[in-house]
Design a protein around this nucleic acid. Sequence first.
DNA 1: GTCTATAGCCAGATAGAC
DNA 2: GTCTATCTGGCTATAGAC
Lengths: 211, 211
Amino acid sequence: MARIPFRQQVLQAREDAIISSVNRLLALKGFDSITVDEVAADVGIAKASLYKHFKSKEELAGAAMIRVLERALALIDTLKQDPKIPAIEQLRSVARWTMQVQLAGEMPSLPAQNSTLRSTLMNSAAYMDRLMAVSDKLGAWITEAQSAGQVDPALAPEVVLYTLFARACDPVLSLLKAGGQHSDEHIIDMLLSTCFNGLSGAPGEPRKGAR
Amino acid sequence: MARIPFRQQVLQAREDAIISSVNRLLALKGFDSITVDEVAADVGIAKASLYKHFKSKEELAGAAMIRVLERALALIDTLKQDPKIPAIEQLRSVARWTMQVQLAGEMPSLPAQNSTLRSTLMNSAAYMDRLMAVSDKLGAWITEAQSAGQVDPALAPEVVLYTLFARACDPVLSLLKAGGQHSDEHIIDMLLSTCFNGLSGAPGEPRKGAR
DNA sequence: GTCTATAGCCAGATAGAC
DNA sequence: GTCTATCTGGCTATAGAC
């Protein structure tokens, strides 16, 4: 571990820069709309050099997804350090974080239908491992919250999990952001409310504040 | 109006067939993944013939969107015939319908980010008129439901409107459908519940039945 | 309006020198 | 590993005969 450091570090830094560019462009334009030339130009290297690091456009997107999943895992582990917080609040914190990432233009958005991309991701152990790690950890909170009656026990757990994932790339947020009528905080408050309390709103609950 | 009928009818029927194919393929694979060749093959005509009816791939997608918006308008007008039904129930009926259309594989899904498609649609009066008609009619119900306290008055009306639109193409539904664990009716019931009552569920409300 | 054939373009991926 | 230059395939759109 003591040797090989410098050149490797440079490479690692370059890969980080690549992933950052891909991540941002993916959030901005989506997988189908970006081109590899564009990514290369954004990073400031030649396209052929990109292909030395990642062997396809799909792998580039996969790397961005892996990174965001790792950020999510880091957040979850941080949240777990306070075991007194009710599961529902942990889930709400995760949802709030995904919305903040979206607003920051850092949430890569992939088309659900692109089949070559899908199969690349499903065949990537690095991706699947992290996806399952996130799912398991959220799944535990979901079960706990349902037992405590904080999340509707009539909902199948997958429904809750998929809904949380889906709200992490919900087009409603970008529409509201583009509308420019509300502050970022207000947008997040309203979307968290629709997510957890529904359009009808929860009669007994305070809607404001409660960071 | 009495003349010109037959040949025109044949053309109209062909255009309907084209739109049906586009609509189905759009629901199945999404705009970016389908090719005009594929549409032509599905309809059973040559690609060049398609371009006699619609002058671009974007216009094809626009025609499909116009048709689904017209179906929505027809539904809304039908629902309006019973003025005794509370606004919230009207909105729920519309949401239920969009989910049924999704499950039937008839909800075209367009990428939110494709800019050439976006500008084609925004420049199409036929599309924009219908989109605004739907928005206005739903908007009236939303305002009414908020006044009656059936929809959370703290939510900006656009949030409610956008959320309903977004639930019409929510990936959660196709994920659950692909999972194969639940009946179509059950999926719709759960998603309507998460949409209107949130993940937490509404304490006072019955969740089952109520078609 | 319908077809076959093709133009024209663009983007993903690679060759080969350094 | 990085670059420039190029290949290759596929896709939108059109030409031109019927």
